[in-house]
Amino acid sequence: MPTLRIPAPLRSYTNGQSEVTVNGQTVEEALQDLLKKYPTLKPHLYNSNGGLRPFVNLFLGENNIKDLQGLGTPLKEEDRLLLIPSIAGGSEA
């Protein structure tokens, strides 16, 4: 299953876990699974319209998913997703 790396400021919402294994064929499904496990994360990642908050970035390897297929980016079993705030749109993961 893919793993999601949780940034330090959000670990108080994941029982201190820095990595969470998630189910999902796409980034969107992986995030939904993460929220099912840790529902209190939701307002930190999503806005009230259901979109990702503007500073939330997900990196698959070196690539921001915004430069891949966005939330529809497919995930493989061994993939590792990094969740990090864009300190100002940073793209060097």
């Binding site: 970035n57 990090i84 705030p85 940073g90």
Partner: peptide, 27 residues
């Protein structure tokens, strides 16, 4: 942190600073 904006990292390199990029997950 390695997620500092690319503009910032480029400016620091231009000024000749030595840079140690740290784990972006740790902020």
């Amino acid at each position: 942190p390695a997620n500092a904006s690319p503009e910032r990292i480029a400016i620091l390199r231009a000024l000749g600073a030595e840079i140690v990029l740290t784990d972006p997950s740790e902020g």
